[in-house]
Design a binder for these strands. Sequence first.
DNA 1: GATGAATGAGTGTTCATTCAT
DNA 2: AATGAATGAACACTCATTCAT
Lengths: 206, 206, 206, 206
Amino acid sequence: MEFNEKQIEILQVAELLFAEEGFDGTSVREIAKIANINVAMISYYFGSKEKLLEALVLHRISGMQLHLENLSTEDISPIEKIEKLIEYYIQRINSNRCMYQILHFEVSSTKREINLEAFTKVKKNNLKLLENIITEGQLQGLFQPNINVALIPPIIIGTITHFHMNKHYFVDLLHLDSDEKYENYIANELTKHIQKTIKALLIYED
Amino acid sequence: MEFNEKQIEILQVAELLFAEEGFDGTSVREIAKIANINVAMISYYFGSKEKLLEALVLHRISGMQLHLENLSTEDISPIEKIEKLIEYYIQRINSNRCMYQILHFEVSSTKREINLEAFTKVKKNNLKLLENIITEGQLQGLFQPNINVALIPPIIIGTITHFHMNKHYFVDLLHLDSDEKYENYIANELTKHIQKTIKALLIYED
Amino acid sequence: MEFNEKQIEILQVAELLFAEEGFDGTSVREIAKIANINVAMISYYFGSKEKLLEALVLHRISGMQLHLENLSTEDISPIEKIEKLIEYYIQRINSNRCMYQILHFEVSSTKREINLEAFTKVKKNNLKLLENIITEGQLQGLFQPNINVALIPPIIIGTITHFHMNKHYFVDLLHLDSDEKYENYIANELTKHIQKTIKALLIYED
Amino acid sequence: MEFNEKQIEILQVAELLFAEEGFDGTSVREIAKIANINVAMISYYFGSKEKLLEALVLHRISGMQLHLENLSTEDISPIEKIEKLIEYYIQRINSNRCMYQILHFEVSSTKREINLEAFTKVKKNNLKLLENIITEGQLQGLFQPNINVALIPPIIIGTITHFHMNKHYFVDLLHLDSDEKYENYIANELTKHIQKTIKALLIYED
DNA sequence: GATGAATGAGTGTTCATTCAT
DNA sequence: AATGAATGAACACTCATTCAT
């Protein structure tokens, strides 16, 4: 699926608006106005508002696969690999914040039925990657044996997502009174916190 | 704020629908139809659709405070207290699933400005509770000293929320092919997983 | 099915416009404007434009049944009965001109599927009436025996309808340069012409 | 007016669609799709959708003139001439069914003003033909003197047209449960019925 | 106190047509 | 000569809300 310049412009505007105001809370006229195109353009290019959402999801999900195939073969310890993986994870969520917001709400909604096969595939691939590293660590006796690997991504993604969703609260609580401070907090404290949490979980003897 | 029978009926229907289809995705006619009342009633009782949402949030948040004042004084170890706290946390999130769904979206949306002071207060109270227990554990030398307490609720809430939002994915991945299995998984595996994670974080020496 | 004053007003306007400009050629805004009501009224009262058409057809067809039950028992000759029947027929078509125009188009259109059972029933009833009179005439030896009764209404209705549809042409051809003359021509010459034609057909020995 | 291959293709598709779904019920995109041409072609070739209709009407009407000049001079009785004329008439209507459908509705509509001079001329020519035959019959003492000739074509055309427009009804009533039976019924029973009717009218003494 | 009737504003979509190429 | 891209206007319809009763 290839999009021309204008289509990509529409997709970008739509992504932002869908994330900020929800799918139902965004009108095609709003999108058209901001993207500086004719309203009819949206139906013309994507068929319908709903299909625009589908196209958007498909378009963006494809870029969300972690490209860490070489991580497995790198000559670093499994712990360092986990740290690196989490860092990548957080960066990816961070830079796909809008899409995550959209996926969370429009997708958990009972109203629309979006094909999330691609997203599921991405998630399963990423899970496999994580499994490999943990298995490696377990074989080296670094990690505990009884780890529920499937429940580790929820910790990472859930924590980050929850932080973003309650930005106002955390900005207030942690005095992150500028966008820079907020971003830095995520890149440093929050990332370290999650890394530490996952490491603890892997190493900690029950 | 006291509501009569019909108002509570409306609030219940609205909560379910707002959670399932979003605020903008739900029409007052839909609410009225399911609640078996006249459309005009919503404006009449609550002023507007938006004010209905506010009333709903206010109404429900008051009940979301963890009532664990006596936990602090109970004669059990801080570790057991943490375990209990997490269990309560998860139960509360679980039984307020719809409200969480609504809050998450409305809180992060730029469209509506809902007064979330009450929600913030609840969160801060709950955080204080957690802090007390952790401090107790640290004084007893059970927990590590350098714990970022503010980032612990995000792990708990974020993980649970992420699990719910991606129900389809986890049902598939973990073969939770009945509502009972799904609920049981949350009450057992997921709860234990989160408890173990937090405990590891608190105890694990960096 | 009972309609209030405004609904009837809408139906009247819709009938005229649907007849003059076709269903697809008429916009609900046009109807609303002429009926002096809000556009939303049409959806509110009838559900949709299409359902307005259905309501209109149902509403009007019920009044199109020939009420000539007593004709059969009247003490006049079958020939006079036929003449009377045709007169009634023509009057009915005449005063339901718009509905006939609409029905003809919608019936032959492949686009909409309107329930025309009621219309079929009316037509079959009227046919039965005609059959009775003709049988009576045949028993009295006045009419020929081999009459294809089913093909008599097409002559009556078809001729009238064709005349109306080509009004411009006949106005020019027959110099009917006023509405009065046109109506009079139908009530007199055309009616007599059709009566004479049908009588000829019934009496004429092949 | 000469049309190239593609234009004729467009005209053919347009004729079918205009007949089936009406002018307003047919979109240029639909025509373009079926005719396998670009949407812009219609405006390009014909100027506009409306002008396409005009072109279509003009194009087809020219072929609807009855070519029976030699009928007048043939050495057969006026009665046989009438029979032949009616047969030709019916055949022409039959093979121009779509155009008749279009003319009936789009032309009686107050929306569009199509130049029907050509059609009027054709009708007047055909009427003249009929007049000549009837005059011949009257001179031979075969036909009654007081015949309203102008009202004879309406009987023929009206009856056929009415039959076509109510195809569903007659198929049901006369058990014409295949296209073949339907066509045969028109070519035989209906044609004979109309011939008999007109003959009766001409011969029958009032 | 409660509601059926009604409405103006706004929704997503389709329309015939235009225009640069 | 022919067309893909693009558009403003119009489409039917739904929305939350108001108001007379």
